[in-house]
């Protein structure tokens, strides 16, 4: 009955929110810088097989670990492999795991948390207790089983990590939704008879985007390091392929003798994380609905 009305609201709100956000993001230099860095890294990762200076697996045992030089800008590792190439290939894995696993965590976590927080009552209790139970299951056994049953596919590893990381996301989203669902505008929308999925999509989720984005940018490094931990235990990426996390964990062991093996992958990871955080903060500020009132 109130269909035409809702379309109008949707159209108005929809365009203004995202368009406003984009304008505000463009004015935030640091966020824009973050966006450029992240885009640059993704482009490099995609192009790596064509632009990498050396093969990531070809060895030169007689060369061994050498410090940075003209031939090898980042130096070489114990096997005489070019570190720049390995950092580039490692970036492919790390960025892919970061993006994929975080997306999985985001989708499941936001959906789960929103429904639990909004519907409330018994549904909420059951859904959150399921989260509690999943938290408590022995994670390593779970991963070992996945690997044994499905074989060691990298894609599966990403999904498995995402499937674990959504739990915290769900808790945070639910907490946020609990606050929002009692706000005046949500109550107004409800009194107007708008359907629940509509309210969730158009009011609740956009208004809890801030913490979601902040937590999502925090999840990216978390899943990258989790991947490193699993690979380190032998449950993840198999050599000679590598990831930033793995390169760093090996670099950390030899940092006193061959520090470049730690410094370059460490820098790559740090730059990515900083850029992501600037971008995340910028997005959060840009999407803040309250800011638009000013």
């Amino acid at each position: 009955m109130s269909e035409p009305q809702s379309i109008i609201i949707e159209a108005e709100k929809g365009t203004s929110l995202w368009a406003d956000a984009w304008v505000r993001l463009k004015n935030n230099k640091l966020a824009l810088f973050g966006l450029y860095v992240v885009s640059f890294l993704i482009v490099v990762a995609i192009l790596t097989p064509w632009i990498a200076p050396y093969s990531y697996e070809a060895q030169n045992l007689d060369l061994g670990a050498t410090p940075p030089s003209w031939a090898h800008w980042f130096g070489t590792d114990l096997f005489g492999r070019d570190l720049l190439t390995r950092v580039m290939y490692g970036g492919r894995i790390s960025l892919a795991v970061g993006i994929l696993a975080t997306s999985v965590a985001l989708v499941i976590g936001v959906a789960w948390g929103t429904v639990a927080g909004y519907v409330g009552g018994r549904t909420d209790a059951v859904m959150m207790r399921i989260v509690d139970a999943l938290y408590a299951l022995p994670f390593i056994i779970f991963i070992i089983l996945l690997m044994v049953v499905f074989g060691k596919s990298i894609l599966l590893l990403f999904l498995a990590i995402g499937a674990v990381e959504w739990l915290t996301m769900a808790r945070i989203v639910r907490g946020q939704v609990l606050t929002i669902r009692n706000q005046e505008y949500v109550e107004a929308a409800r009194s107007m008879g708008l359907s629940t999925p509509h309210i969730l999509r158009k009011h609740v989720v956009p208004n809890s985007l801030g913490p979601i984005i902040v937590y999502a940018t925090l999840t990216v490094p978390q899943v990258m390091l989790l991947e490193a931990f699993l690979s380190f235990l032998g449950l993840g990426i198999q050599p000679p392929m590598s990831s930033w996390g793995l390169l760093i964990s090996y670099g950390a062991e030899v940092m006193e003798d061959t520090p470049w093996l730690l410094i370059f992958p460490g820098l790559a990871l740090s730059i990515t994380l900083f850029a992501l955080n600037f971008l995340g903060d910028g997005l959060r500020d840009a999407l803040d609905p309250k800011a638009s009132k000013d």
């Binding site: 697996e57 070809a58 060895q59 045992l61 114990l78 096997f79 070992i144 060691k152 235990l233 032998g234 449950l235 198999q238 050599p239 000679p240």
Partner: peptide, 26 residues
């Protein structure tokens, strides 16, 4: 074990053109 396997994998690949996949297991 990882280091030995990485080196041997390359030796086989380079000299014999044989593809070996490394499997690290718990």
């Amino acid at each position: 074990h990882r280091k030995v396997a990485i080196a041997v994998q390359q030796m086989w690949n380079k000299e014999l053109n044989i593809q070996v996949n490394l499997q690290n297991k718990d």
